[in-house]
Simulated assay, not measured.
Amino acid sequence: MEVVHQTFSITAYIVAIVIGATCFALVLRELGGDALVEETLTSLPFGPYGIVASILGIVFFLGFFLDWIEITLIILPLLASVISHLKIKYGCIV
């Protein structure tokens, strides 16, 4: 019975994290946060590969504080538009 209680507890924590991350991402997008992040990253003077390296550095840094689930749910929706605007396809700039 104790194992079932701990399993439900851990599952509830994970569901709460998913709901919280989704709400955070939605509020941030509605307030224009994704446009701000996109504008900030695309204005860097590094070029497409430098921007990708910057994003990887940010995700690496966030890995010290957040779990991969939170990083995926919060950061990925914000950075997907930035990566798609870089016009990198199969490792080559198009």
Rank of each mutant, 00 (worst) to 15 (best):
F24M: 12
I83V: 14
L66M: 05
G32I: 08
P77E: 06
E2W: 01
I74A: 00
H85I: 01
A53M: 04
L41T: 02
T40D: 04
V18Q: 03
V4S: 04
F60C: 07
E30F: 11
I83A: 09
S9R: 01
A25G: 10
F64D: 00
L78D: 02
Q6E: 08
C92N: 12
E2H: 02
F64H: 00
W68A: 12
A53T: 03
K87M: 04
L36I: 07
V4Y: 04
L76W: 05
V27Q: 08
T72V: 11
L26H: 13
I83Y: 07
A25W: 05
F24V: 10
Q6G: 01
I51H: 14
Y90L: 15
F65C: 09
V94C: 15
L36W: 09
V3G: 02
F46W: 15
V52T: 02
A25R: 07
P48V: 08
Q6I: 06
L31A: 10
A25S: 13
G57W: 09
E38L: 06
A16G: 05
S81A: 12
R29C: 14
I58W: 05
Y90E: 14
L76P: 00
L44F: 13
H85K: 06
I71L: 14
I10V: 10
V4F: 02
S81V: 11
I51T: 14
L41E: 02
G63E: 09
